[in-house]
Design a protein around this nucleic acid. Structure first.
Lengths: 202, 202
DNA sequence: GTCTATACCCTGATAGAC
DNA sequence: GTCTATCAGGGTATAGAC
């Protein structure tokens, strides 16, 4: 009887290659942005040559978009899970998200730099980020409304305003934190805002 | 007697050229970032060829830094003037600054994109932005302390925390506003935060 | 102060062998 | 699936004429 070798199948090797490319791409897009990152560097970091990389992702733009969509999928998944888990503690859930972000500076930098690049309408990720903010604002506004009805969040500010405010605080803190991680305690400052948004004496 | 011609002096022409280059540089650095902007485009927009531009600014990096320092000088000047003018109304002064920013989207985009690029330690503007935040946080913390003593701003949050919070809100709102200027009313949302930071019943 | 011409490097992508 | 070789194009900066 033929022993089953531990050798990986082709499909497994493909998956492993794509995974290494994705990791390397996150690193370089985060550091240099889409325009500054070089395919050769990403390939090298994934132990490949450039044509080797292009076999898996047929262009730089496609690589960017697939990395972005994959990370977005994982992150919004986590966000929704966290919000649901702490269903009756919306503000605590937000803090938990910020605290998690403190453990993945590379990913935070990826989104901070790429969304800034993406403001330009001719950037390949422009539509992606516009839609992402629209979608997440809508979703989170609903959650906030529930928290207001549950008397957890102050109701003198409309939910639509609170979403913009909370996302802005997250994004803005990330900039100062990424510039000086030792100096800025992101979650501590964020917690101050969350305290203010509690119902009085909550 | 020889009539004095209206012809501009050399010094005046130099100044005019540099001014046009600076304006064009702001535009392209804001849209494409430092890494994405092309010297040829900037030169063309200033009605020059590339060597013509390089006669005034000897390298792309030098051009970036001089544009940044010039704008920084003007902007912090304005910020300080506004803060002093409304000396006893710190929160109103902040709103006035945000309202002014709404009239200069190009400059806002310049700083939003370049600070994101500048997070990378190997970016030519990295030190510039780190120092800029340190300096402005220190200055504004002092102003906040005065506003707290004047019983205008709530004193249950340390001034050092409030600075980080306020700058973060400004930066974060700019991202959403630049992505969708029609949808996001930056100064209106910002005003909500300022209201919260007032002394109770102030 | 501005131009033409050009050197020189980098970059994304393709062709085709293994 | 990954490589070598290579192309076409674009990028900053310099040399030197006017």
């Amino acid at each position: 009887m033929k022993l089953q070798t531990p050798r990986r199948t082709q499909a497994e090797r493909t998956r492993a290659s794509r995974e290494k490319i994705t990791q390397a791409a996150i690193e370089f897009f985060a550091q240099q942005g889409f325009r500054g990152a070089k395919m050769a560097d990403i390939a090298k970091a994934a132990n490949l040559t450039e044509p080797g990389l292009l076999h898996h992702f047929p262009s730089k733009t496609r690589l960017l978009m697939e990395v972005l969509k994959e990370r977005d999928r994982i992150d919004t998944e986590r966000m929704r899970a966290t919000l649901q888990k702490n269903g009756n503690h919306f503000l605590e859930a937000c803090i938990e998200l910020v605290e998690h972000n403190e453990t993945v500076p590379g990913l935070v930098q990826l989104f901070t730099l790429l969304v800034a690049e993406g403001i330009s309408q001719d950037h390949p990720a422009h539509a992606f980020f516009t839609q992402r903010y629209q979608r997440e604002r809508e979703h989170m506004a609903q959650v906030i409304r529930q928290a207001q009805e549950a008397n957890e969040v102050r109701s003198d500010i409309p939910a639509e305003t609170l979403v913009v405010l909370i996302f802005a605080m997250m994004d803005g803190l990330q900039v100062q934190w990424l510039l000086e991680p030792e100096k800025i305690n992101m979650s501590r400052v964020f917690r101050v805002l969350m305290d203010i948004l509690k119902v009085e004496g909550g």
